[in-house]
Design a binder for these strands. Structure first.
Length: 271
DNA sequence: AGAGGTACCTGGCAGC
DNA sequence: TGCTGCCAGGTACCTC
């Protein structure tokens, strides 16, 4: 589910409800997420106050004075702020309960998500340390892509999914941005010109920004922190639209297996 | 170093 | 209706 826009939508949704709140307890109903949820959380988090809620790539960082809670939503995770008395459902694996009576509830059917507690600088944690630039930041631009991908033979779609190149872009937005830039997903990175990379960087930024504005993309089960789905799926041009007409030229959209995941493109608009 | 495959897990859906 | 197989928004880790 969640790529950068969905995580950012979640961040904005929970921020006003958790900043300044003090944690009273942690409830772990199923500790078997991507990594086992540490029992340290129950000891160390009560009494801590959340100072900030930030995002790095697809990771959410809830900072306290003594450490940071790192949350990842995996493929199917979502976070909601609910009244602590509300009964959990089958996939509500972790609650972070606050002194206000509210709790931050992690729902994750596939359990690819993560909840980690780190005392040191979270940006130096091994999961975050090697992440590439934020696509919405000033240090991400076409020249960066051109320099980093010079001589690389891999498909551009695969390169865009690599968090070490660029943080937070997943399969949906990689495909959508490539469509907007007129570049085929299977195109070898080394064949793309500096000019085209300039267009691609702008397309990535624009696609992500528009998705955030729409509250993210809901394909199956994504819900924002208010329980509402995102609406960007209504704006998807190619992703999930195999056989349907290209919104620009009406040529049927094609789907192609690239590596382990499906790429979508317009054979006429994308070269 | 880079590329490719596997693994983690469940729900939904197409096809029979 | 029910079973089987395949697919899915992520990414660490392994082998070649």
């Amino acid at each position: 589910m969640p790529e950068l826009p969905e995580v950012e939508t979640t961040r904005r949704g929970i921020e006003p409800h958790v900043v300044g709140k003090t944690i009273t307890s942690i409830v772990v109903r199923n500790s078997r997420l991507r990594w086992r949820v540490s029992t340290k959380l129950k000891r160390e988090l009560p009494g801590r106050t959340i100072h900030t809620v930030t995002r790095r790539g697809k990771y959410l960082l809830l900072a306290t004075a003594t450490g940071t809670l790192i949350l990842h939503l995996g493929m199917s995770g979502s976070l909601r702020v609910v009244d602590g008395t509300q009964p959990p459902d089958k996939y509500d694996h972790v609650d972070i309960v606050f002194n206000s009576g509210d709790c931050l509830r992690l729902h994750d059917p596939r359990r690819f998500g993560a909840v980690l507690w780190v005392r040191d600088n979270p940006l130096q944690h091994k999961l975050l340390k090697h992440l590439g630039p934020e696509p919405l930041s000033a240090d991400f631009h076409g020249d960066y892509l051109f320099e980093k991908l010079r001589g690389r033979r891999r498909a551009i779609r695969d390169a865009l999914l690599d968090g070490r190149l660029l943080a937070g872009v997943g399969n949906i937005y990689a495909n959508e941005a490539l469509f907007a830039a007129g570049i085929r997903p299977a195109r070898r990175a080394e064949k793309i010109t500096r000019i085209q990379y300039g267009r691609l960087a702008l397309a990535i930024r624009d696609t992500l920004n528009r998705a955030i504005q729409a509250g993210g993309t809901t394909l199956r089960d994504f819900r924002g922190s208010d329980g509402q789905p995102g609406y960007f799926h209504l704006s998807l041009s190619v992703y999930g639209h195999e056989g349907e007409p290209c919104p620009v030229c009406r040529t049927p959209i094609r789907a192609k297996r690239l590596g382990q995941r499906t790429a979508f493109f317009c054979p006429k608009c994308q070269m």
